[in-house]
Measured scan of single mutants.
Amino acid sequence: MVQRGSKVRILRPESYWFQDVGTVASVDQSGIKYPVIVRFEKVNYSGINTNNFAEDELVEVEA
């Protein structure tokens, strides 16, 4: 279970941040499909630095 402030590695192959490390900004408990919002240092092609992920697409590298 990841929690706010954890450092996580992204396992979603189609993601711009695949294999990159980001910080968990928040975790939604309402039961949505992609409840974990992760914030990154670098921006993607659209200038965005956050994205939603499912918990099984993340691996915690640092608490």
Results as ranks from 00 to 15, higher is better:
residue 21 V to N: 00
residue 61 V to I: 10
residue 55 E to C: 14
residue 45 Y to N: 15
residue 22 G to M: 05
residue 37 I to F: 12
residue 11 L to V: 05
residue 41 E to M: 07
residue 60 E to H: 10
residue 2 V to Q: 04
residue 46 S to W: 14
residue 47 G to F: 06
residue 32 I to S: 13
residue 35 P to Y: 10
residue 24 V to M: 02
residue 39 R to L: 11
residue 4 R to F: 05
residue 58 L to I: 12
residue 45 Y to E: 15
residue 1 M to V: 11
residue 53 F to H: 01
residue 10 I to K: 03
residue 29 Q to A: 10
residue 31 G to T: 06
residue 8 V to Y: 02
residue 27 V to F: 11
residue 58 L to A: 01
residue 20 D to T: 09
residue 63 A to I: 11
residue 42 K to Y: 07
residue 36 V to F: 13
residue 52 N to T: 07
residue 13 P to S: 09
residue 20 D to V: 09
residue 40 F to I: 02
residue 58 L to T: 02
residue 40 F to V: 00
residue 48 I to M: 14
residue 17 W to K: 01
residue 63 A to G: 12
residue 29 Q to I: 11
residue 10 I to M: 01
residue 51 N to D: 15
residue 46 S to F: 14
residue 55 E to K: 09
residue 57 E to H: 01
residue 56 D to E: 10
residue 15 S to L: 04
residue 57 E to I: 03
residue 17 W to L: 02
residue 53 F to V: 00
residue 47 G to T: 01
residue 19 Q to V: 06
residue 55 E to P: 14
residue 31 G to F: 09
residue 7 K to T: 08
residue 13 P to T: 10
residue 43 V to W: 10
residue 44 N to E: 04
residue 33 K to A: 12
residue 55 E to M: 15
residue 56 D to W: 15
residue 6 S to P: 03
residue 49 N to R: 08
residue 38 V to F: 02
residue 21 V to E: 05
residue 6 S to L: 06
residue 5 G to F: 03
residue 59 V to D: 09
residue 25 A to N: 05
residue 17 W to G: 01
residue 49 N to W: 07
residue 41 E to C: 12
residue 41 E to R: 08
residue 24 V to Q: 00
residue 8 V to K: 06
residue 26 S to E: 12
residue 51 N to R: 03
residue 23 T to W: 08
residue 7 K to N: 04
residue 3 Q to A: 10
residue 12 R to A: 07
residue 3 Q to V: 12
residue 7 K to M: 09
residue 25 A to I: 15
residue 41 E to N: 10
residue 4 R to T: 13
residue 38 V to T: 00
residue 8 V to M: 00
residue 31 G to P: 06
residue 9 R to F: 07
residue 33 K to N: 09
residue 5 G to E: 04
residue 30 S to H: 07
residue 60 E to Q: 13
residue 55 E to T: 13
residue 53 F to A: 00
residue 38 V to W: 01
residue 44 N to L: 04
residue 61 V to G: 03
residue 58 L to G: 01
residue 9 R to P: 04
residue 19 Q to R: 09
residue 12 R to W: 09
residue 42 K to F: 08
residue 25 A to C: 15
residue 8 V to A: 00
residue 55 E to W: 15
residue 58 L to E: 01
residue 29 Q to H: 13
residue 39 R to N: 08
residue 51 N to P: 01
residue 28 D to C: 12
residue 2 V to D: 05
residue 61 V to Q: 04
residue 49 N to P: 02
residue 33 K to D: 09
residue 62 E to A: 11
residue 56 D to H: 14
residue 17 W to H: 02
residue 12 R to P: 08
residue 4 R to N: 08
residue 49 N to S: 09
residue 21 V to L: 10
residue 63 A to H: 12
residue 20 D to I: 09
residue 41 E to D: 12
residue 59 V to T: 08
residue 30 S to P: 04
residue 34 Y to Q: 04
residue 26 S to N: 11
residue 2 V to F: 15
residue 44 N to H: 12
residue 53 F to I: 01
residue 15 S to N: 02
residue 55 E to S: 09
residue 30 S to V: 04
residue 48 I to W: 09
residue 54 A to N: 09
residue 16 Y to T: 03
residue 16 Y to G: 01
residue 20 D to M: 13
residue 52 N to C: 14
residue 57 E to T: 02
residue 13 P to Y: 09
residue 19 Q to F: 09
residue 60 E to V: 15
residue 37 I to Y: 10
residue 29 Q to T: 14
residue 57 E to Q: 02
residue 49 N to F: 08
residue 3 Q to D: 04
residue 55 E to R: 13
residue 14 E to W: 13
residue 24 V to T: 02
residue 2 V to Y: 14
residue 2 V to I: 15
residue 60 E to L: 15
residue 16 Y to M: 03
residue 45 Y to S: 15
residue 20 D to L: 12
residue 55 E to L: 15
residue 5 G to C: 11
residue 40 F to K: 00
residue 11 L to Q: 05
residue 17 W to C: 03
residue 54 A to W: 04
residue 59 V to W: 08
residue 60 E to A: 12
residue 36 V to L: 04
residue 29 Q to C: 12
residue 48 I to V: 13
residue 18 F to Y: 13
residue 50 T to N: 04
residue 24 V to S: 00
residue 33 K to C: 11
residue 6 S to C: 13
residue 45 Y to R: 13
residue 5 G to T: 02
residue 17 W to S: 01
residue 42 K to G: 05
residue 24 V to C: 06
residue 49 N to T: 06
residue 49 N to Q: 07
residue 10 I to Y: 04
residue 63 A to W: 12
residue 26 S to G: 14
residue 53 F to W: 02
residue 6 S to A: 13
residue 19 Q to D: 10
residue 25 A to S: 10
residue 45 Y to F: 13
residue 6 S to K: 08
residue 1 M to S: 14
residue 28 D to G: 07
residue 11 L to S: 04
residue 48 I to S: 14
residue 54 A to I: 03
residue 36 V to T: 00
residue 15 S to H: 02
residue 61 V to R: 02
residue 2 V to H: 07
residue 50 T to W: 15
residue 27 V to H: 04
residue 60 E to T: 13
residue 50 T to C: 15
residue 30 S to M: 06
residue 36 V to K: 00
residue 33 K to V: 06
residue 40 F to Y: 01
residue 42 K to L: 06
residue 11 L to D: 05
residue 32 I to D: 09
residue 15 S to Y: 04
residue 22 G to N: 02
residue 12 R to C: 08
residue 24 V to I: 04
residue 41 E to H: 08
residue 8 V to D: 05
residue 24 V to A: 01
residue 9 R to L: 12
residue 19 Q to S: 07
residue 8 V to I: 02
residue 4 R to L: 12
residue 19 Q to P: 02
residue 33 K to R: 13
residue 29 Q to Y: 14
residue 4 R to I: 15
residue 8 V to P: 02
residue 39 R to F: 12
residue 37 I to H: 11
residue 59 V to A: 12
residue 30 S to T: 13
residue 50 T to F: 14
residue 30 S to N: 08
residue 61 V to P: 03
residue 25 A to Y: 11
residue 51 N to V: 10
residue 10 I to D: 04
residue 43 V to I: 08
residue 41 E to W: 08
residue 23 T to I: 13
residue 63 A to K: 11
residue 10 I to F: 04
residue 43 V to N: 10
residue 1 M to G: 14
residue 50 T to A: 06
residue 30 S to C: 08
residue 56 D to Y: 14
residue 15 S to P: 01
residue 56 D to P: 04
residue 5 G to K: 02
residue 18 F to K: 00
residue 13 P to V: 14
residue 18 F to N: 01
residue 41 E to S: 08
residue 32 I to R: 08
residue 11 L to W: 06
residue 4 R to W: 06
residue 27 V to A: 03
residue 30 S to D: 05
residue 46 S to N: 14
residue 6 S to F: 06
residue 26 S to K: 10
residue 10 I to W: 04
residue 52 N to I: 06
residue 37 I to T: 15
residue 35 P to Q: 07
residue 25 A to R: 05
residue 5 G to N: 03
residue 35 P to A: 08
residue 9 R to K: 11
residue 54 A to T: 05
residue 51 N to K: 05
residue 43 V to C: 14
residue 42 K to Q: 09
residue 15 S to M: 03
residue 52 N to Q: 09
residue 35 P to D: 04
residue 50 T to K: 06
residue 37 I to P: 00
residue 57 E to C: 04
residue 51 N to H: 13
residue 5 G to L: 02
residue 25 A to K: 09
residue 26 S to C: 15
residue 52 N to G: 10
residue 16 Y to C: 05
residue 47 G to P: 03
residue 27 V to T: 03
residue 28 D to K: 05
residue 21 V to R: 00
residue 34 Y to N: 06
residue 16 Y to N: 01
residue 9 R to T: 07
residue 16 Y to Q: 03
residue 28 D to M: 11
residue 55 E to H: 15
residue 3 Q to N: 08
